[in-house]
Every structure is written in structure tokens, then in C-alpha cells.
Nucleic acid binder design. Structure first.
Length: 299
DNA sequence: AACCAGGTACCTA
DNA sequence: TAGGTACATGGT
């Protein structure tokens, strides 16, 4: 069996990352058993079933479905994992900056080593951004589960099923009614299928956004698409594009977490959010990710 | 039983 | 430009 070892960055806590990944029972794109992550992915059209575990500062990646892959594909696989766990970020810089902020300082201590878990698959990130709009996370996970199980590719290993997120190729060809049958609202069904068509036609690609210098330009490009507003644009920028200073200002979860941390009577206003963001501006994405975790820190 | 969920597009004035 | 509303459904 192939085994790949990936060295972790200095500041890295596998348990913190796992805790985030475990946040919902209905997650379908990976499974966690005994601190080992199981996930199906597709690389260069080859389906792989991976297990990922941690051992003395290395991630150990095993390919369970008895396939040997080329050196190029091994590199692609390593890139995927490193992107998923955001290994390229220099957390020492975030911490140095964030410790000066009274909201972030305790979070950095509690969550030390947590990395911003990314969504490398661009369409998966947009899909999740559209699904998550306005509804509670429980329902959002249910919708995603139905979408993935209906239209994603399935792998079976030792009597368990693993799914790969549906491709734009598949989703661009389905109907609004099919998604409404999965309890998507008509609007969300339209948004998702339309975005799939746009990406499928290459009018929008992840590379296109990665090559843009300016955050504002990326945001404008995303917001221009029906179904992606300011919140979803920033969400995709932080989770998939790797923008360091994205800030989903309208995010209710973020607002409620800040309300609790600051002991406010009401959720912070847009103006308050903008003011708070000044305290971590260069690192808004990480600040957001850490604040999202705040309600789950056990005292 | 209302009201709120990791919002957005669309309508009116 | 600003303000109001529908949207599908689950949790509290």
C-alpha cells in the first residue's frame, strides 16, 4: 500500500483541525474514525480513497484502494492535502499580529495550531456558499448530503460508502425541479445550476481568480454571478481562493459569536463589524475562522 | 407558535 | 439609493 508522508508546518495542531472537521454528523465528504480521516478524491480522473492520520509532525496519507499513482499525481495529491489544511500560511505572523487584539488573543491561546480548513474544489466551495445562505447549518448539511449522494461519485470500501462532490459537468445538466425535490428552494436550485454552467463553460475558473492581484477584483467577479452576494463572495475567497483578508461581514454566525464574546445586547451592526475588522484587517480570514470556533471552545 | 438560521435577488418609490 | 419581501425547512 502506498504511503505518503507530508511534513507539517511548525505551528500545527492536528487535534484542533480534527475538532473543526468533526463539527457536523451529516458531513458526507469525509469520515473520521479514531482520529483518522477517510476521504475519496479524484486526481487526474483517478479515484482514490485516502486515509489521513498524524504522527510526530507528519501527516500520513495512505491510498486504500490498491492503486499506485505516478509521481506527478502524487505531487497533485500532496498539493491537495497541503491546500486543504492551509499549510502555506505563516501562522506566526497571524499570531504576532492577532495577540495585540483583545478578541483574538484568548482565541489564539485556545485554538493554537488550528489552520483555516480550506475547500480546494472551487465548485464545492461555491456550492456550499450557496447552500449555506440564510438557513441553519443543520439544514445546510442535509441539503449538501442529498446533493452529494444524488449526484456525486461513490466509492465503496469495506462496506462503507465514500462520496466525491458532484462536478459542474453533472450539475450543469440537471433540472431545477430535481434539486427542489431535494428541498432546495427554487432560487438556490437555479443559482447552483447556473453557476455550474458558467464554470463548465470556462467563463469562470479558480485559476482566473487566483491570478487576480486585487481582492476587490475577485470580489467583483464573484458578486457579478447571480446567487453570489457579498457574503458568499468573501466566503469563497477565504475558503477556496486563499485570500487572507476576506471578511464575510453579513455572516450571522460571526455576528452572534462576536455578540457573545463582547457581551453585547444585540448583534453588532454593520458599522461595528467594520470597526472590529480594523483590529485584524490583514488577517480577516483567519480572524473570522477563529471567531467561528469561539462558541465551541469548552471552558 | 413565532422567530431565527453561516443571504440574495427582486420589486417599489 | 433605500427599504421591504419571498424563499424551504429545521431548531428552539
Amino acid at each position: 500500500m502506498e504511503e505518503i508522508r507530508i511534513e507539517c508546518p511548525d505551528i500545527f495542531d492536528y487535534e484542533q483541525c480534527l475538532a473543526y472537521l468533526k463539527r457536523d454528523e451529516n458531513e458526507v465528504l469525509f469520515d473520521i474514525v479514531d482520529d483518522k480521516i477517510y476521504r475519496a478524491i479524484k486526481i487526474d480522473d483517478i479515484k482514490l480513497l485516502l486515509s489521513i492520520s498524524y504522527e510526530r509532525h507528519y501527516l500520513i496519507v495512505e491510498i486504500l484502494n490498491d492503486i499506485s499513482i505516478s509521481p506527478e499525481n502524487t505531487e497533485r495529491l500532496v498539493n491537495f492535502i497541503e491546500e486543504w489544511f492551509d499549510f502555506s500560511a505563516d501562522l506566526s505572523l497571524f499570531y504576532q499580529y492577532g495577540r495585540k487584539n483583545e478578541i483574538l488573543e484568548p482565541l489564539i491561546n485556545e485554538l493554537y495550531g488550528l489552520r483555516l480548513i480550506r475547500i480546494p474544489d472551487f465548485f464545492e466551495a461555491i456550492s456550499w456558499g450557496i447552500i449555506g445562505q440564510q438557513i441553519n447549518l443543520t439544514f445546510a448539511y442535509q441539503l449538501k448530503k442529498r446533493l452529494v449522494e444524488s449526484y456525486g461519485e461513490k466509492m465503496t470500501f469495506e462496506n462503507k460508502s465514500y462520496y466525491i462532490h458532484p462536478t459542474v459537468d453533472v450539475i450543469s445538466k440537471i433540472t431545477v425541479k430535481e434539486l427542489m425535490d431535494l428541498k432546495f428552494s427554487r432560487r438556490k436550485a437555479e443559482y447552483l445550476i447556473d453557476v455550474a454552467k458558467i464554470i463548465h463553460s470556462q467563463m469562470l475558473t479558480k485559476d482566473m481568480l487566483l491570478n487576480m492581484e486585487d481582492k476587490v477584483e475577485i470580489e467583483k467577479t464573484l458578486v457579478n454571478i447571480r446567487g453570489i452576494g457579498p457574503w458568499a463572495a468573501h466566503y469563497v475567497m477565504m475558503r477556496s481562493i486563499g485570500v487572507k483578508n476576506a471578511f464575510p461581514i453579513g455572516d450571522v454566525g460571526l455576528q452572534n459569536a462576536l455578540k457573545a464574546i463582547l457581551n453585547l445586547e444585540q448583534k453588532p451592526s454593520k458599522e461595528q463589524m467594520i470597526a472590529l475588522n480594523k483590529g485584524w484587517e490583514m488577517w480577516s480570514s483567519y480572524a473570522t475562522f477563529y471567531i467561528w470556533r469561539a462558541p465551541y471552545i469548552k471552558k
